[in-house]
């Protein structure tokens, strides 16, 4: 309080603006650590499922549009550039450049979300969804086209029908047919039915046999839906971060339009910039992990 040169943006409990700036910046870095740890949890889940069930990744990634994914990567990289440029403009008190750069960054962010919207729509159309919303794909080539309504088997139905189907399969097997379409369809379904009764649901040996069978008759692995669970949870959480990023950028956009930032005070621009780079960075990891599996 006794400091004569206390500019209005420096809070009373700081000695000077350097101390405040350093504190703010360190706080943001620590916050980014927590963000990284949140995504690290998801990356761990990814690694564990990929190690135990590689086939679902090889199968599932075919349904993702590599072109759109690459385009989105490009868009986010561009937005990181414009954001960094904006921070520089703030440091140099170039208000106009700052506003332009922030606007461009937001434009890129919206572009990213729009493309994501089209990707998600395609998934909904194909029924390549998470968990029990997943629709069993009846296309043998796995992925070029979606299944039509009557052919589709939702995961929920699969669980319900499983008993009947597996009985069919047993009947077929008893009749001597080992590679009929019916029997191979039954393998994944019967797994879901058996799971609640005992440890066979997560028996690591089962998927191995399953893979064996799948390689010969039907390429769709039993746990294919889990790939899409991971896809949706990872891209969904990332998408939420993009939305939060847009809100933050918009806020500093409004403030900078009022002339709040200049070469002596630009902390918020700097911090939002850091956050935005992290959002970008996470996508840089998500893109190859999900889209470029083979």
């Amino acid at each position: 309080m006794s400091h004569h040169d206390h500019p209005s943006h420096v809070h009373h409990h700081f000695e000077n603006e350097v101390q405040q700036f350093d504190s703010d910046k360190m706080g943001m870095w620590l916050f980014l650590v927590t963000e990284i740890m949140i995504f690290a949890g998801l990356f761990c889940a990814y690694i564990i499922y990929r190690t135990h069930n590689p086939e679902i990744f090889h199968y599932g990634h075919q349904f993702l549009d590599k072109q759109l994914g690459a385009l989105n990567t490009l868009i986010l990289l561009t937005s990181s550039l414009t954001m960094a440029w904006g921070v520089r403009a703030a440091q140099l008190s170039q208000k106009k450049t700052l506003l332009t750069m922030l606007a461009l960054t937001m434009l890129c962010a919206f572009g990213f979300l729009i493309i994501k919207y089209f990707e998600y729509s395609a998934k909904i159309h194909h029924g390549t969804l998470y968990g029990d919303r997943y629709v069993w794909q009846t296309d043998e080539h796995g992925g070029e086209h979606g299944a039509s309504g009557d052919e589709a088997h939702s995961m929920a139905e699969a669980v319900a029908d499983a008993q009947a189907v597996s009985e069919d399969a047993m009947a077929a097997e008893a009749a001597g047919g080992t590679s009929t379409m019916n029997a191979s369809m039954a393998v994944p379904s019967s797994q879901f039915a058996l799971a609640p009764e005992g440890p066979s649901g997560f028996d690591l040996n089962a998927p191995e046999e399953q893979k064996e069978a799948a390689a010969h008759s039907f390429p769709q692995p039993a746990k294919a839906h889990l790939f899409f669970s991971i896809y949706f949870i990872m891209t969904g959480l990332h998408g939420i971060h993009v939305v939060i990023g847009i809100i933050c950028i918009f806020t500093i956009f409004v403030f900078s339009a009022r002339g709040a930032y200049n070469s002596t005070y630009y902390t918020p621009v700097d911090l939002v910039g850091l956050y935005w780079h992290l959002v970008d960075l996470i996508w840089i990891y998500l893109f190859p992990l999900l889209y470029l599996v083979d």
């Binding site: 499922y49 029990d132 879901f192 609640p196 649901g201 746990k223």
Partner: peptide, 23 residues
Amino acid sequence: LLIVERVMHIGIFNPALGGDPVL
């Protein structure tokens, strides 16, 4: 993930959907 599991049935922790509860 647990909340999403309950609300959306993603199956990651649910053995009935092929997931891994020990995870």
